[in-house]
Design a protein around this nucleic acid. Structure first.
Lengths: 203, 203, 203, 203
DNA sequence: ACGTAAGCGAGACGGTACGTCGCGTCTTACC
DNA sequence: GGTAAGACGCGACGTACCGTCTCGCTTACGT
């Protein structure tokens, strides 16, 4: 049973393609990368690409899935307390990963990025991290408070926006510091969502 | 004084192209709309399109600019008080416009939309509305508080996320109600940004 | 009756267009000259061009007609003897004209020229000059001799070929000398055509 | 040894394109044939055309080259005597080929033809056939006789002119008869070129 | 000399071909 | 079975040139 998972050639080809995609995305933006670009950079025949992936989106998606799996593999510390003032370890780990691949994510989330990615893959990626800090969806009969789904969408996009700022300013602070701020923002939003307080912004 | 602004034919052609773009964007998503589609729908020769616009992005961009100009033309009520609990009239007007063209914006901001648009045109569009609710940028010497630019990016993307939720759920509440909620969220974020309070999310 | 022929503006425009055509033909070959090129060089609006000519071929054709008329205006010397060893004055005049506009004809007759022109305008131009040296078409019952029309086509194209050689070698001899040679060739061909002699090319 | 020379598909595609070109050239003249015409007739995608040829000129040129190669493959009879009264076997073979494809060459050499072709491809085609009947270029010190290059250009174009006559009159005589006449003409011209005799066209 | 019909400039428009590019599918042959 | 090599169909791209047209300005001509 030599099957490490796949044929060695297959693993080599996929790795080359993945590497090429990342490099090229950094260089010219995901939108402008073509399948031909990727295969030329990877020194792989174009038709071989189609043996493995339907298109460049599938390749990207597969890469993201791998990253998510990798991060989740670092299992959560069970002793972790849900301290409202302390960001979750998962969030910090995500930010550390983003920081480690800053060039890539800066482009991917920016204007030359993939909208579907922003809206989908990364969304899933972040969503699950935010989930645990969200109180159980007790049925919301109160129509004066914003629906919980609205809050989720709000905080989600906000998080992406924040990360974009972080990346485009060359990560001017540590992932830990940044996670704290992110946490403060989202906690405040949560409060609003639950109608706990009205901010008194008396100037 | 026949010159209303431009050659009548020019105005007719541009209007037809604009209309076609909007219709087609709703039908199949901006990404999938081609110049040929637009010109066929508008019953205009393809080469004529290129007389007026460089590409479909330019057409979209021009349309957005017109919309912004139109909304801004409804001059602000000067007597308006900057009531922290009350959203600005500008925000309400934007939301009313979005609601009136819900089909269009739902697609444009969604996964078949234009990332550059999300990141650019609409950004400018919203940015200026948020700006006035932002306190003057007193020099931020305090490094323990999140930078003001981070807050802006956070609130901006959050707003887009919120609008997306609104659109994808078929505007389950009035623009006015929605504006109030949006305002509450962003005020809370502002508080955090200014370090005014730490949310006490005691569960 | 001040009508010199046309409105002054018309004459000016046509002259400019003609001049532009000739210049551009010399520069890039008739084939590669566009109507836009011509009008830009002539500093005349493109639509004005179409007021006067159907296309660039019409402009060229009109120019050639003018040239022919001009040359023919120099009326033939009636005392001229049809000396078989002496080329006709008309031929010499043509060659002088060609020499005076060598740059133009070199291009026009060459590979970037107008095939229709080679085959038509210039043909007529030359044809009539050759005609007088051709004996009356007595009915040719003799099928062993080449038909007279064959000879005409032969000599005609030969003449163009010869002129091309002359032009492409920068007229290495005077029009008069060249006319003598041309005459010798065509006289020899005529002899063959009439079956007068079989050349004994004993080497 | 399956490789007959090329991919079977390639040979099929090229053959279809070639056939389409010839048909369309006959129907509307080479000038008016477009790449789109050719590919539609050949039932081949337009982009496939560009895989094989740069433009229609390249396709024509390749066809001519093939024809030339084919004719030359019929190797010359070595025992052939350079009889001044007898045309070369090569010339006859060319004329036979032209006759077999009369419709095509009639158009190609005519006014809707390709001037560059007339001047180039076909020129080479004929040139080499005439060459062997040309005496060795002994240095021409005698400036009273026409230069040898002049004679070549003269005879070359004359030959094309003669063939044009032949085609436009539906080949009223056999290639062999026509070759004899062509030979007589060119021999006479050669004589002139060598200064062997002055034609005495006594009428 | 001057009013007016023309010539003309400016440029929108429809039409058609161009050559290029990217995609995804396929076949063939090699390893 | 994984690859390379590459033909092929498809369809969009942006550009170029064509010829027609409408609309006003200006200018040379004729009375």
């Amino acid at each position: 049973m030599t099957k490490n998972s796949e044929d060695l050639r297959v693993r080599r080809t996929r790795a080359l393609l993945q590497k090429a995609l990342i490099e090229l995305t950094i260089e010219k933006g995901f939108t402008d990368v073509t399948v031909r670009d990727i295969t030329e950079r990877a020194m792989v025949n174009r038709s071989t690409f189609y043996h493995h992936y339907q298109d460049k989106y599938a390749l990207l998606s597969q890469y993201i899935d791998e990253v998510i799996a990798l991060i989740q593999a670092q299992e959560d510390d069970p002793s972790q307390v849900n301290d409202p003032d302390q960001p979750s370890a998962g969030l910090v780990r995500i930010l550390q990963h983003v920081q480690a691949n800053a060039d890539f994510y800066r482009v991917l989330l920016g204007k030359k990025g993939d909208p579907a990615f922003c809206a989908q893959s990364f969304r899933r990626f972040i969503e699950q991290q935010f989930r645990h800090m969200r109180p159980d969806q007790e049925v919301q009969a109160d129509h004066s408070k914003p629906p919980i789904d609205l809050s989720v969408s709000y905080i989600l996009h906000a998080g992406i926006g924040a990360i974009l700022w972080w990346l485009e300013n060359d990560q001017p602070c540590s992932p830990e510091q940044f996670a704290v701020w992110l946490n403060q923002f989202s906690m405040a939003d949560m409060s609003v969502s639950l109608g706990l307080e009205s901010p008194n912004l008396s100037l």
